[in-house]
């Protein structure tokens, strides 16, 4: 938390997004720490995915500023950048709520597409690659090695040559994370990575995300409804309701915040007994953070 305040990788200032008369996100400010897992939670329709789409450039915010700072000091104003430039230059990768894999391509090809920009340069923007330049072949071998590494990490090595559309749901979610990681991001945005996973799978997901954070030293930003994931791995939670930030802090602080309780349970705080709240906001609280 302390690191987040002094040197955040992502700083969102007064972000507002209006669609016609509807304010999906209103005056939202928060930061994400450089090596933290930041969770964005809130009831359905709270504007979480809108925030994601603003950060990754799929929406242009109506107002506000989104700043991403690289470790070397480079600053990127994401609200001014095209979506693909955010992924390419600012090094922000994302996954989607409804999985978006290249279903007709193999698992390995999905990961190779993710390394497009590096391979494009290695192939001399196609001109060298078409004549079979050695530098490109080397780069492609390296790309395959990186793909193999991530396939191994998400447990899909055996399925490398199968079409991505043939994978079971949980494996598709893991492949999407591996694909995002193949772009070698500094900030990984996950939109409901645990949706549709069974308890064992979401436990595996927790381990995967924690190890990604630890080994790659990158920041994670996630939207999640599964409280066992949110409370289990987050360092920092931002709670949205009707596009407004209602709480911001560590899992323990957020869990105890009356505003959060009101938003989730729709009752006055004095009527909400502490044990119901505890149940709603984190059966996972007993699980010790590794």
């Amino acid at each position: 938390m302390a690191a987040a305040d002094s040197d955040p990788i992502l700083r969102v200032d007064h972000l507002t997004m209006r669609f016609g008369g509807l304010t999906a996100v209103g005056d939202l400010s928060f930061t994400a720490g450089r090596n933290d897992i930041t969770a964005l939670i809130g009831p359905n329709g709270a504007g979480k995915t809108t925030v994601f789409n603003c950060i990754t450039g799929f929406y242009k915010p109506t107002e506000g500023m989104i700043t991403l700072r690289h470790p070397d000091g480079g600053e990127y104003l994401l609200e001014r950048m095209d979506d693909f430039r955010i992924a390419k230059h600012a090094k922000v990768a994302r996954t989607f709520q409804n999985i978006r894999l290249f279903a007709g391509m193999t698992v390995l090809e999905n990961l190779m597409v993710a390394q497009h920009n590096r391979l494009m340069i290695a192939s001399g923007y196609t001109f060298a690659g078409i004549f079979g330049a050695g530098s490109y072949r080397r780069a492609e071998r390296e790309a395959i090695e990186l793909s193999k590494f991530w396939l191994d990490r998400v447990g899909l090595s055996e399925r490398a040559d199968d079409p991505a559309g043939d994978l079971p749901y949980g494996a598709q979610r893991r492949l999407e994370i591996a694909r995002a990681m193949c772009t070698e991001p500094l900030l990984l945005c996950l939109d409901e990575p645990a949706a549709g996973l069974n308890p064992r799978e979401s436990e595996d997901l927790n381990r995967l995300l924690l190890s990604i954070r630890k080994e790659q030293g990158i920041a994670l930003l996630l939207i999640e409804h599964d409280m066992s994931v949110v409370m289990g791995i987050s360092d920092h939670i931002v709670v949205l309701d009707y596009g407004q930030k209602i709480s911001d802090g560590s899992p323990a602080e957020v869990r105890a915040d009356p505003a959060v309780i009101r938003a989730y349970l729709g009752v006055d705080e004095e009527e909400a007994p502490a044990d119901i709240v505890a149940e709603a906001l984190g059966a996972a609280q007993q699980e010790d953070r590794p």
Binding site: T56, A87, K88, M105, V113, T183
Partner: peptide
């Protein structure tokens, strides 16, 4: 296969 996924991977 998927244009939006392409853009999310930094493909112009």
């Amino acid at each position: 296969e998927d244009e939006i996924a392409c853009r999310s991977l930094g493909i112009n």
